[in-house]
Design a protein around this nucleic acid. Structure first.
Lengths: 191, 191
DNA sequence: CACGCTTATGCAACTAGTTGCATAAAGCGG
DNA sequence: CCGCTTTATGCAACTAGTTGCATAAGCGTG
């Protein structure tokens, strides 16, 4: 039950239409929560029906017309309640780690190239986050809200740094495996 | 489409029944993939119907009776194909980061205690992984398969270390916020 | 002014994961 | 040998997220 709260947070930071929210989820919000435009429109409808947000009167609600939303007091209360409530961390799932574990049984063929590709993707993401950091948190911008938002961005930056380094480590291990790239491991049956 | 491949990998490492698989997912497999027993039984049924695994003949298939499965050659081929195929990294979602971002708008009340609790949970998980490392990868156990599995475990260990440290950092930032714990931020409306 | 492109909203169907509960056999204690 | 707990398998219903496509307005251009 986190998407509605992600949307409430985004709308409190700045009232927006569905498409604007989608773009913000693709950019800065994306480093801790992702959502497609379908999810967002559906959830906006629910939140409006529950009386937590409302469409800004200024724009008429016709198809192809922007419809911006703002958060109502009930929405702010709900967000505060949710933020304060204790929650257990969700177990994470990582496909690449799963593939490496599988490779220990069925062989590493084809994996190294994708490790390299992922390393580049993480590095590119890291550069994007650093750009956001330069733009949004210049020295001196350190009020309480800035500190909290910066903390969250730092998590994104540090995580991308982590994965970049871990993938470097993984690739160096690959280099040390017996003729890596086109072999199978001892227990792999030949076709 | 990763759960079936997680199960194939686990069954190749050791043929197991549904409940045994569930326990293995709760323990060591859990650091890169999690699943409930419902998911596992459902998926075992599908994999058997597709001819990728089969029930070991030794045990009769009655309710309350163990039913162990082994991977068929077609299952191994499918796993090798999947492992080698390029896949994009999935955007991650982190509820705690979302709550921190929300706290920048609605106030930090109640959050610090949960940050502390999460820190302890991550530290406990870290100790479990270190225990697995001591048990499963003693010095000298470093064949190609061991190296790959160890690499994956290291990712689990390093990630828990990362979060423990990040939460320490977050808590130290909290300590520096103006009378943290029961205040609201400037733009929060009072009820 | 008809055509194609972009912006913007949305429905429907699907896949994946979660929650709650049911069923049944085996082991054990009195 | 009766009831209790543990082990083991499974169904049904639900929530969350994804994919594919439809609709319609605005805008530019030949």
């Amino acid at each position: 039950m986190s998407l509605p709260h992600a949307i409430l947070t985004a709308l409190l930071e700045k009232p927006s239409s569905g498409l604007e929210l989608t773009r913000r989820f693709d950019k800065s919000i994306g480093y801790f929560w992702s959502a497609t435009h379908q999810q967002i429109y559906r959830e906006l409808g629910k939140l409006e029906a529950e009386g937590l947000i409302r469409a800004l009167a200024s724009e008429q609600p016709a198809r192809g017309q922007k419809k911006a939303y703002e958060v109502l007091p009930a929405g702010r209360d709900e967000l505060a309640r949710w933020t304060a409530a204790s929650q257990d961390p969700k177990p994470h799932r990582d496909v690449m780690l799963l593939r490496l574990r599988a490779a220990a049984v069925v062989g590493t063929e084809g994996l190294e190239a994708d490790l390299r590709r992922h390393r580049e993707l993480h590095e590119r993401q890291l550069e994007k986050y650093r750009e956001i950091e330069r733009r949004d948190f210049p020295p001196g911008k350190d009020g309480p809200e800035d500190r909290l938002r910066h903390l969250v961005l730092r998590a994104g930056i540090d995580l991308e740094t982590f994965w970049t380094q871990w993938l470097d480590h993984a690739l160096s291990e690959f280099a040390r495996l017996p003729d890596a790239g086109d072999r199978e491991l001892p227990d792999a049956r030949k076709a």
